[in-house]
Protein backbone atom coordinates (compact mmCIF):
# COMPACT_ATOMS: atom_id res chain seq x y z
CA UNK A 1 0.00 0.00 0.00
CA UNK A 2 1.27 3.47 -0.85
CA UNK A 3 2.15 5.82 1.90
CA UNK A 4 -0.42 8.53 2.66
CA UNK A 5 0.80 11.90 3.85
CA UNK A 6 -1.81 13.74 5.90
CA UNK A 7 -0.69 17.31 5.50
CA UNK A 8 -2.51 17.99 2.27
CA UNK A 9 -5.96 16.89 3.32
CA UNK A 10 -5.80 18.54 6.71
CA UNK A 11 -4.56 21.78 5.17
CA UNK A 12 -7.51 21.61 2.80
CA UNK A 13 -9.90 21.01 5.65
CA UNK A 14 -8.43 23.80 7.72
CA UNK A 15 -8.64 26.24 4.84
CA UNK A 16 -12.28 25.38 4.36
CA UNK A 17 -13.00 26.21 7.99
CA UNK A 18 -10.96 29.41 8.05
CA UNK A 19 -12.75 30.66 4.97
CA UNK A 20 -16.04 30.40 6.84
CA UNK A 21 -14.77 32.06 10.01
CA UNK A 22 -13.37 35.14 8.31
CA UNK A 23 -14.18 38.16 10.39
CA UNK A 24 -14.77 36.22 13.58
CA UNK A 25 -13.31 37.80 16.66
CA UNK A 26 -9.78 37.16 17.93
CA UNK A 27 -8.61 33.58 18.08
CA UNK A 28 -11.86 32.37 16.58
CA UNK A 29 -10.60 32.92 13.07
CA UNK A 30 -6.90 32.08 13.57
CA UNK A 31 -6.78 28.82 15.55
CA UNK A 32 -8.26 25.80 13.85
CA UNK A 33 -9.83 24.09 16.86
CA UNK A 34 -11.55 27.23 18.10
CA UNK A 35 -12.42 28.29 14.57
CA UNK A 36 -14.07 24.95 13.93
CA UNK A 37 -16.23 25.34 17.01
CA UNK A 38 -17.03 28.88 15.99
CA UNK A 39 -18.01 27.71 12.51
CA UNK A 40 -20.32 25.01 13.84
CA UNK A 41 -22.04 27.57 16.07
CA UNK A 42 -22.26 30.16 13.33
CA UNK A 43 -23.84 27.77 10.86
CA UNK A 44 -26.33 26.58 13.45
CA UNK A 45 -27.26 30.16 14.31
CA UNK A 46 -27.69 31.15 10.71
CA UNK A 47 -29.91 28.12 10.05
CA UNK A 48 -32.04 28.96 13.06
CA UNK A 49 -32.15 32.67 12.36
CA UNK A 50 -33.24 32.24 8.74
CA UNK A 51 -36.39 30.82 10.27
CA UNK A 52 -36.58 33.36 13.07
CA UNK A 53 -36.21 36.20 10.60
CA UNK A 54 -39.78 35.70 9.41
CA UNK A 55 -41.07 36.15 12.97
CA UNK A 56 -38.74 39.07 13.68
CA UNK A 57 -40.00 40.99 10.71
CA UNK A 58 -43.62 40.27 11.44
CA UNK A 59 -43.09 41.67 14.93
CA UNK A 60 -41.42 44.77 13.54
CA UNK A 61 -44.28 45.35 11.08
CA UNK A 62 -46.80 45.01 13.87
CA UNK A 63 -44.89 47.53 15.99
CA UNK A 64 -44.89 50.00 13.12
CA UNK A 65 -48.53 49.49 12.19
CA UNK A 66 -49.43 49.99 15.83
CA UNK A 67 -47.50 53.26 15.98
CA UNK A 68 -49.08 54.50 12.75
CA UNK A 69 -52.63 53.51 13.61
CA UNK A 70 -52.39 55.04 17.08
CA UNK A 71 -51.67 58.34 15.37
CA UNK A 72 -55.25 58.05 14.10
CA UNK A 73 -56.56 57.05 17.52
CA UNK A 74 -56.99 53.35 16.77
CA UNK A 75 -54.98 50.58 18.37
CA UNK A 76 -53.36 47.86 16.30
CA UNK A 77 -55.86 45.19 17.28
CA UNK A 78 -58.89 47.41 16.55
CA UNK A 79 -57.38 48.40 13.24
CA UNK A 80 -56.71 44.82 12.11
CA UNK A 81 -60.16 43.74 13.24
CA UNK A 82 -61.71 46.63 11.33
CA UNK A 83 -59.78 45.71 8.22
CA UNK A 84 -60.99 42.14 8.32
CA UNK A 85 -64.58 43.34 8.83
CA UNK A 86 -64.17 45.64 5.85
CA UNK A 87 -62.87 42.72 3.82
CA UNK A 88 -59.57 44.42 3.15
CA UNK A 89 -56.83 41.85 2.84
CA UNK A 90 -53.58 43.79 2.90
CA UNK A 91 -50.77 42.02 4.67
CA UNK A 92 -48.73 43.47 7.49
CA UNK A 93 -45.65 43.93 5.38
CA UNK A 94 -47.46 46.22 2.96
CA UNK A 95 -49.34 48.03 5.73
CA UNK A 96 -46.08 48.84 7.50
CA UNK A 97 -44.58 49.98 4.22
CA UNK A 98 -47.53 52.26 3.50
CA UNK A 99 -47.28 53.75 6.98
CA UNK A 100 -43.69 54.81 6.27
CA UNK A 101 -43.87 55.88 2.62
CA UNK A 102 -47.55 56.66 1.92
CA UNK A 103 -49.20 57.79 5.11
CA UNK A 104 -52.18 59.19 3.18
CA UNK A 105 -53.03 55.73 1.85
CA UNK A 106 -52.56 54.30 5.31
CA UNK A 107 -54.91 56.94 6.74
CA UNK A 108 -57.51 55.97 4.15
CA UNK A 109 -57.24 52.35 5.24
CA UNK A 110 -57.66 53.39 8.86
CA UNK A 111 -60.79 55.27 7.80
CA UNK A 112 -62.20 52.16 6.11
CA UNK A 113 -61.39 50.05 9.15
CA UNK A 114 -63.02 52.42 11.63
CA UNK A 115 -66.10 52.68 9.40
CA UNK A 116 -66.37 48.91 9.44
CA UNK A 117 -66.09 48.90 13.23
CA UNK A 118 -68.86 51.46 13.82
CA UNK A 119 -72.06 49.39 13.23
CA UNK A 120 -70.80 46.85 15.75
CA UNK A 121 -70.32 49.33 18.55
Amino acid sequence: MPRVKRGITSRKRHKKVFRLTEGHKGVRHTHYKVAHESMMKALAYSYRDRRNRKRDFRRLWITRINAASRMHGVTYSQFMHGLSLAGIMVNRKVLADLAVYNSAVFAALVGKATDALKPQA
Binding site: A67, A68, R70, M71, H72, A99, V100, Y101, N102, S103, A104, A107
Partner: peptide, 13 residues
Protein backbone atom coordinates in the same frame (compact mmCIF):
# COMPACT_ATOMS: atom_id res chain seq x y z
CA UNK B 1 -50.45 64.88 23.87
CA UNK B 2 -50.13 61.47 22.32
CA UNK B 3 -49.24 60.66 18.73
CA UNK B 4 -50.93 62.55 15.89
CA UNK B 5 -50.67 62.02 12.09
CA UNK B 6 -48.76 65.30 11.63
CA UNK B 7 -45.79 63.82 13.47
CA UNK B 8 -44.94 61.61 10.53
CA UNK B 9 -43.52 62.95 7.30
CA UNK B 10 -43.48 60.43 4.48
CA UNK B 11 -40.07 59.03 3.70
CA UNK B 12 -39.09 59.39 0.04
CA UNK B 13 -38.17 56.13 -1.59
Amino acid sequence: NGPIPEMHVDIVR
